[in-house]
């Protein structure tokens, strides 16, 4: 099996690159963290990669709007290279701040704006999968953590219509098992039509607010001590893995 090469962007306050790398490696990929300035200096690294990841974080402190400054930097210096990368049969993912960066850079439709609560929120959400993104193949629904202040998805009518036409809505928040367990609303931030993730390039580029890389192990779940007791009482084995690993496996399998 071929080990796909993953380039994970870093620098200027991105901060989820290490756990994103661990998730890709756990799924069987070869992942490298690279500072955006190094990529700008040597863009050829993109030619050698099959997967690009824009991880979560707080690039430029969200100053002037989340993802804006980093998105501009990407657009300013790497437009052509990213275009060439996406011309090939490759994958890209933007997680949380990475999603905000990709929308700012114009690689994904729509925008992310301040949560309805006007406050940063960290909790787990339930997601329903739609569309046909290879990142989400075989997954119907899953629960993942979110952690953001500006995660409310917004698109104007035209963009929304185009999204639907392209089958490009990938994830929607729903009131599923996690929200039920903790008695929390399904939609955490007021996102338009409960949209949590969208795609472009026929599903190959996925942007999502939730963090699959923080849901790799069973003991990362927020209610695992409760679930564990249930498994023990049922005499069932306690699971080892979390739901997020599926996305990274899908990426690896895409190149198999």
């Amino acid at each position: 099996m071929i080990k796909p090469k993953v380039t994970i962007f870093s620098g200027y306050g991105l901060n989820c690159e290490e756990e994103t790398k661990a998730a890709f490696e756990f799924a069987g990929a070869e992942a490298h963290i690279r500072h955006i300035n190094d990529i700008i200096a040597t863009p050829s690294v993109l030619k050698e990669s099959q997967v690009l990841a824009f991880p979560g974080g707080f690039s430029y402190g969200d100053d002037t709007g989340s993802g804006k400054a980093y998105g501009n930097r990407v657009k300013e210096h790497l437009s052509e290279e990213l275009d060439a990368f996406l011309q090939r049969d490759t994958l890209a993912i933007g997680i949380c701040n990475g999603f905000q960066i990709l929308t700012s850079a114009g690689l994904l439709p729509g925008a992310l704006i301040a949560n309805d609560s006007a406050r940063f929120i960290c909790r787990w959400v339930d997601l329903k999968v739609e569309g046909h993104s290879p990142w989400l193949r075989g997954i119907e629904s899953l629960s993942l953590p979110i952690a953001h202040g500006e995660g409310k998805y917004y698109a104007d009518q035209k963009t929304l219509a185009q999204l639907k036409k392209d089958d490009a809505v990938a994830l929607r928040y729903e009131r599923g098992p996690m929200s039920e367990h903790f008695d929390l609303p399904g939609n955490p931030n007021g996102a338009l039509e409960n949209i949590a993730g969208v795609t472009a390039y026929d599903g190959r580029v996925l942007g999502l607010m939730p963090h699959p890389e923080r849901a790799i192990r069973f003991t990362q779940l927020p209610q695992w001590t409760c679930e564990k007791e249930r498994y023990l009482r049922d005499g069932a084995p306690v699971p080892e893995e979390g739901p997020g690993i599926a996305l990274f496996r899908n990426a690896v399998d895409y190149f198999a």
């Binding site: 901060n15 989820c16 290490e18 756990e19 661990a22 998730a23 979560g56 406050r119 940063f120 929120i121 960290c122 909790r123 953590p145 952690a147 367990h181 903790f182 008695d183 963090h211 890389e213 923080r214 790799i216 003991t219 990362q220 927020p222 209610q223 001590t225 409760c226």
Partner: peptide, 22 residues
């Protein structure tokens, strides 16, 4: 607890808010 990210770095095992009743 909810406005402080306790999941970043992917290291969280037991959370600042515990149980269904948080």
């Amino acid at each position: 607890s909810q406005q402080y990210d306790h999941e970043v770095q992917g290291t969280s095992v037991t959370k600042p808010l515990q149980g269904r009743g948080r």
